[in-house]
Design a protein around this nucleic acid. Structure first.
Lengths: 140, 140
DNA sequence: CTGCTTGCAAAACTTTTGCAGACGG
DNA sequence: CCGTCTGCAAAAGTTTTGCAAGCAG
C-alpha cells in the first residue's frame, strides 16, 4: 500500500498521468472500502471524501489503476467487478454462501509454474487465483 | 469431455434434471465454440444445431451446468462470463493483447496449498487460476 | 495555455426474471 | 399428466461513451 499522499501522487505522475484530487480520493477509498470491494462500494467511500465525485470517474480511474498496476481486477460471479489493492501473489478464498473473500498466502507463482516464460514464452503481468467453496464460518 | 450423447443425457439425469434437446445442444456447443467461449459465442454455435434456441435458455443451462460441475465459470475483464469445459485444475494464461487463452498444466492445488481445509477450514468446490500477460505469439 | 480529466446523462451491454405454453419422464 | 423447462420480452444491473466545462502541469 502506498501510505502517504505524496507517494500516491508520485506514483501516478511517474506513470505519465495527472494526479487529480479525484484520483487520490479513489485510491484511498480502495483501502477504506474494506476487503475486495466492488465499484459501488468504492464510490460510496470516495463520496465521503468528495461528495460530488461521479461513478464514471471512479470507473475510469480504477481502470487506469489496473493498467499501471496499483490494483488487481477480479471479474466476479454477480456480474460486477471487484478490486483487490493487494497486488502480491496470493489465493482468494471466495465463499459461495456468504460471498466473503479471505486471502490465503501460498508458495510463489514461480514455484507453482517454474519458467513460465521459458516454457511457453508467456510474459506475466498480473494474476488472479480464486478458489471457491464454503468458508469455515458458514460450515460450522 | 462427455463424448456420446447418451453419456451427456445420463449425466444430466443423474443430477436430477431433465435431458432436454436444448440442454444437449448447449453442452455440445460449449465444446464446438472453441476455447473458453463467452455466452454469445456459445449461443451462436447452439443456434447452428437449433436455430430457435433462445439466449435466456443458454444462460439458464450454463448456470445449471456450473452447479452440477460440467463447466467452470470464469468472470472476465470485458464484463462477460466465459466458460471453461475443462474442470480440472490448471492455469489459464490470458493474453492482454489478443485475448487468447491458453491452458497450462501445473502442480495440483493440494501441492500449492496443502491442507486448505485443515488450516483455515475452507471446503474447496471450484477454482479459477488466471495469469495475465503477453503471449508468445504477441511478443514475437 | 494545452489538453487531460471530470461530471452528467444517455447508450450499450450482459444477465435475470415472470409468465404462458411446450414437452420430458 | 405433472412439473420442469423453454422462449419471449421486459427489467435490472453494470460499464462505457460523448461532450462541454474545469483544472493540472
Amino acid at each position: 500500500m502506498l501510505s502517504s499522499r505524496e507517494e500516491i501522487v508520485e506514483t501516478i505522475r511517474k506513470s505519465g498521468h495527472r494526479a487529480t484530487s479525484q484520483r487520490i480520493v479513489v485510491y484511498e477509498a480502495l483501502w477504506k472500502a474494506g476487503s475486495h470491494p466492488n465499484v459501488s462500494e468504492i464510490h460510496k467511500y470516495a463520496s465521503k471524501s468528495d461528495p460530488t465525485i461521479s461513478l464514471a470517474t471512479v470507473y475510469k480511474n480504477l481502470q487506469l489503476f489496473s493498467e499501471i498496476g496499483l490494483v488487481r481486477e477480479m471479474g466476479f460471479r454477480d456480474g460486477s467487478m471487484r478490486y483487490d489493492p493487494d497486488v502480491d501473489f496470493h489465493i482468494n478464498l471466495v465463499c459461495n454462501k456468504c460471498g466473503r473473500i479471505e486471502d490465503f498466502d501460498c508458495i510463489s507463482l514461480e514455484e507453482i509454474a517454474p519458467n513460465l516464460i521459458q516454457k511457453v514464452g508467456f510474459e506475466v503481468q498480473s494474476h488472479n487465483f480464486e478458489v471457491r467453496g464454503i468458508c469455515s464460518r458458514c460450515r460450522s
